[in-house]
Design a protein around this nucleic acid. Structure first.
Lengths: 306, 306
DNA sequence: GGAAACTACTTGCCTGTAGCAAGCATGTGT
DNA sequence: ACACATGCTTGCTACAGGCAAGTAGTTTCC
């Protein structure tokens, strides 16, 4: 599923599947005494405390004339009550009566029963996956890109494994570094977790909408020197200021616990990271050519007086 | 989203969202000269080489009478050709004409364009996730549970990070082991990746439908002794024989490269794993009480003569 | 072999859904 | 005060699509 056409066809396939599956269900409405549109009207009225015919029409994308008739029908049946709007003589305020609410409850119960039947084709774990997947679809397609929520927290069990994984996979993919790089990161993770001292050290995991998106760690090298390690931001999370924030959190904490200096080790050529270091005031103090992780590198040391 | 009612409501919510989003699109059909049902008929005819009116009716769940009329309309317009069925005088065989196929192509193009527009509300990564999620939904709800496909492969960059993560997270959750356990696993990963010798060592990653589900590693301890390490199967992948297969692959490979003995170290109380070791012929040779990862344990050594 | 039952399709009839446009009443801007 | 916009209603209309009766073939069963 790489090119756009394949993806489009996949979506078409799903749409056909889902509308068919759901279409069967909504035929169930015919079983009740309301048409699908009538049911939608009732549903809409039940949702919003006070609704006007125009509101209904635009919300459900129906012709106002038709809505008018539906409402009239419902009124005759005692399902909705209408009153003139207090602030606008043209407007009408619609409200479900107790009877209308009963009708809604019946509809909702029926619909729930059918969805439940639909869900029953898989087990509880499967149902959770389905819902999770649906939320993914909705989240992605809901149009408004809904500004992502970025949060920062300390590491938890599993996080350092994740850091190792992402470093290993991404630097392999983008720079061709071999498994010894992943080994090195695993070594750093081991050390950090083993000797972790919360008084002097700290790590941050950045999450975007609850999904891990980046990290950084502050490690003690000596009483006066803190080391910045394992900075990393997922490519899909770029542009949210996560890198900047991680570096500044890290440096801020280093100041806070009383280090006099920060160091970090990296290699030449990782420009986005370089920019972050420079912006925070780090200075390149040493460069040594070398060979590691299956490639030639220029190892760099950066320092920052606090 | 724990109880069934919450889940049902989540699905209802999604259905409303999706049908609304897709409903807008299918209005596009009105833009064309075909109604939605007509479009479905054309689509169905395009899919199946030769179709009968009855077939259409049952496939699309329409009234045969109505189908008859739609077909007649299409015939007049030159979109479909009909011939009497050779083997049954009552039957009719319908086929799209070249003109009909053109109509289908136009419809498909239009529909694709609209789906593409729908998809364009997210980036490429998002689109992939959407499709993935849709396949999950369809897979789960399509009724036939579609047996999962299990595959086994050697490790790739990132895999050992994943192994560290899963060990760290899961043993913390289920047994309350602290971060030093994750540190230890990270140490094992580091060692393995650093000194990996394909002549004597190997790892297996089990994937279920392309998703990592478990792993095992064979590590050289000496010329004659191989060690089984890092056995792990995700809880959602239990019952597929993955654990058994991993252990037997590992032992088989150990035999193959010529070790005389296998060892493995574990702690008492991990019963599912224990059963796998026993089934493969491992014998418990040593038990030592101790304390690690924030808990008391009985460390165990298991051995197997090859 | 032939009546009875069944299947595939057609056609006439009818209802419900829903859009369009004209009309009326109330509001708003100049 | 006038024009114009907004909210709602109502008459007209088209179309979708179900139901049932009818025709022509096919299968079943005696």
């Amino acid at each position: 599923m790489n090119d756009i056409e394949t993806r489009v066809d996949a979506v078409r396939r799903f749409s056909r599947f889902y509308t068919k599956r759901i279409g069967l269900l909504s035929d169930g409405f015919l079983g009740s005494e309301y048409s699908l549109t009538e049911a939608r009207v009732i549903y809409e009225l039940a949702q919003s405390e006070a609704q006007s015919p125009t509101g209904l029409a635009s919300e459900l994308e129906l012709d106002p004339g038709y809505v008018s008739r539906v409402v009239k029908r419902f009124e005759r049946r005692g399902l909705v009550a209408r009153e003139p709007s207090p602030d606008d003589g043209r407007k009408v305020v619609l409200r479900l009566t107790a009877l209308g609410r009963t009708a809604f409850d019946e509809l909702a119960t029926g619909s729930r029963a059918q969805i439940q039947q639909l869900l029953s084709s898989t087990d509880e774990e499967g149902q959770r996956r389905v819902i999770d997947a649906m939320q993914t679809v909705e989240g992605q397609l809901s149009g408004e890109p809904r500004r992502p929520i970025v949060t920062y927290r300390a590491h938890r069990p599993g996080d350092f494994g994740w850091i190792v994984e992402r470093h290993g996979a991404i630097y392999h993919e983008s720079h061709g570094w071999d498994a010894t790089f992943e080994a090195m990161v695993a070594g750093i993770a081991k050390e950090f977790l083993e000797r972790f001292d919360p008084a002097w050290e700290r790590s941050w995991i950045a999450e975007v909408d609850g999904r891990r998106a980046g990290n950084i760690a502050l490690v003690r090298r000596s009483k006066t020197v803190g080391q910045l390690r394992l900075l990393f931001v997922e490519s899909w999370a770029r542009g949210l200021g996560i890198g900047t924030r991680l570096v500044s959190e890290c440096v801020g904490q280093a100041r806070h616990v009383g280090y006099r200096k920060m160091v970090l080790f990296t290699v030449a050529g990782l420009d986005p990271a370089r920019r972050l270091y420079e912006a925070e005031g780090f200075r390149l103090t040493e460069e040594t050519p070398g060979h590691s992780w299956g490639k030639d590198h220029i190892a760099q040391t950066w320092e920052l007086k606090l």
